[in-house]
Design a protein around this nucleic acid. Structure first.
Lengths: 339, 339
DNA sequence: ATAGTTATGGTTACCGGTAACAAACTCCGA
DNA sequence: TCGGAGTTTGTTACCGGTAACCATAACTAT
């Protein structure tokens, strides 16, 4: 298999012009039924593999949609990617993925790299970017979607929610359940802007309700279960004990829960726990964890649907940028049951 | 930003030929220092973005490495992808990812699609493929790596381990810890060939040791915690009770653990539990779970290193296919402590 | 000063498809 | 039988870089 056959080889073998072979591969093109069958048969026999590189160049369409996410090792983002992928698969679009590792400089580099591949659209996680990254996105003149956030000054379209509001909702729930001394774990301003937003939402609502509260920092994202447990240990070894702990993610919350189990602290009797993200873990742990379901899969699916529509219909990209507001759901569970 | 500037535009603005601009972008090319600086400055000002589509076509190098994995929503595969990605990032290679959803027909379609993009190498998860998929891979005349398995008849290179042997090792450990009536959860022959291999390893070792054993099926992969719990409930409601449960993955094992907690069954006192995969969960749950660490990240990292070497050095691809055997580590923990 | 070498830049053609346009063929009714 | 609409196929040029090769300028050694 030294050199792969190309279209012109198929054409020669079939006794037609290369253009006809090209058409035979496009479902909607006008080619005689017999001609097409013959061409496809010969192509399969010769082991022909279509070269989209050449096609992309001439037609100026790559069939790529590029997406940047903070990390793959996170079930939430993985769900979003899955939703995105499924929405695009049947449209013949290929997802081009890159991780930023929760870092806007990485994001900038990544965006630049991805744009070289001439994606037809770009999906980014979050609404904060370097100036140059913004410029790159704007100049690319392709649809851009920011997800998992509601940026103040969107670059293009938005499919997201307010992390602060969602967390505020959780604080209200805990207040209603009888919690009075709260603690929040995570959300340092170290790159995870969504985590930081959640913390802000926590603080302002706790203040508004006149509740005591403490903040505990974790290291750099991604937050792990282990760090949640460590933070909880720190908290419990401190002077004042909270009666409820909110976490930037369910993983940290689970870590908190295990630390309580280790110390024989009853959850929710002596300590309420809530997380964020509606990970599988929250539904199955004992006790089950109260959490916020941000509908990660939907974020991806709706982003995909939006892009498919924009790319299909030659809707002028100057159509008003749409803002799809996802409404996170509070999932109340055992870990915050009222006394 | 109606039409993006191209190299020839930069060339005109800089008063040089397009070829010189092309060279200015390649680090090792011979261009005068002043000329290069001037070109790069102009390019940045004009918002030029390199078009790799054209470059790929002419140079017959895509800079892509394609990989298929069963699912992204799995920390093990995500780790492998991370390792792969990091190993390739600095080599200027882009990862092109696709999911098979644990289905070889999907895999075949995916491989075909990915090959159209003319990747320079292909990484697949597992060693079982449709005949046509095998043919496609062989004809592509690019390096192929099969991972997470040790195929009997490899397509190309291999970076993997024996799932059966690893599980047998775990059975031995449980036997040594005093377990006598075993159960295995998962590993149905429903697409997850690695799971099925683990089950085979379990069965043959349990037989060899003369241990009683039962098998419990789960639904289609991916196995979830919930299904682990359900399977355990089924098992406990049955006639004979095992004294140790082995699971196809840590997630199922954790589900099993929660079911025990719900029923007040002491782990490991009354029931030992072991999983597979060394997920974070195993290290932090109470009790911590005995598991097998397959070194998912390393599989990716070593695959990436192997490919980088092959692609860099123009090593003739007829060099003997290498087989990198990863040695999974048994991580003994509380959940299987001897009585 | 002259030949030989290196550094730098230009020319031409081409990678493998397909857009745009033209042409040939089929089929039908008047 | 002929014109016109619809269908199927062919022709030509081109997408935006760069491989391969050539032409200078600059610099060295003799």
């Amino acid at each position: 298999m030294a050199n792969a056959p190309k279209m012109s080889d198929i054409a020669k073998a079939a006794g037609v012009s290369p253009m006809t072979v090209s058409r035979a591969f496009k479902a909607d093109a006008s080619v005689g039924k017999k001609t097409r069958e013959k061409i496809l048969k010969i192509a399969e026999e010769m082991g022909y593999v279509f070269d989209s590189t050449a096609s992309n160049l001439r037609s100026q369409k790559s069939g790529f949609v590029a997406a940047t996410i903070p990390s793959l090792n996170n079930a939430n983002f993985a769900d979003t990617v899955r939703g995105l992928n499924e929405a695009m698969r049947d449209k013949g679009l290929q997802l081009l993925l890159g991780y930023t590792d929760y870092n806007v400089e990485n994001e900038e580099r990544l965006i630049e790299q991805l744009l070289r591949r001439r994606p037809e659209a770009m999906v980014v996680t979050g609404g904060r970017h370097t100036d140059r990254a913004r410029r790159l996105l704007l100049n690319a003149s392709i649809p851009v979607v920011e997800t998992w956030d509601l940026p103040e000054d969107p670059v293009g379209h938005t499919v997201g929610f307010s992390n602060a509001d969602a967390m505020a909702q959780l604080v209200e729930h805990l207040h209603a359940s009888g919690a009075r001394r709260l603690a929040f774990i995570g959300g340092d301003d170290n790159g995870d802007t969504r985590g930081a937003d959640r913390r802000k939402g926590f603080v302002s609502k706790a203040r508004a309700l006149g509740l005591e509260y403490r903040l505990v920092s974790l290291g750099a994202p991604p937050v792990s279960m282990r760090e949640g447990a460590r933070a909880m240990a720190e908290l419990l070894d401190g002077d004042t004990q909270p009666d409820a702990v909110l976490c930037v993610s369910d993983l940290a919350a689970f870590g908190v829960l295990t630390e309580c189990q280790r110390r024989g602290i009853d959850v929710p009797g002596e300590m309420m726990i809530a997380g964020f993200g509606a990970f599988d873990l929250a539904e199955i742990s004992v006790p089950t964890l109260t959490t916020i379901d941000a509908h990660a899969y939907d974020i991806g699916a709706r982003t995909g649907a939006l892009l498919a529509e924009i790319l299909r219909g030659d809707s002028p990209q100057d159509g008003a940028p749409s803002i799809m507001r996802i409404r996170p759901t509070l999932k109340v569970s055992r870990s915050t049951a009222a006394k």
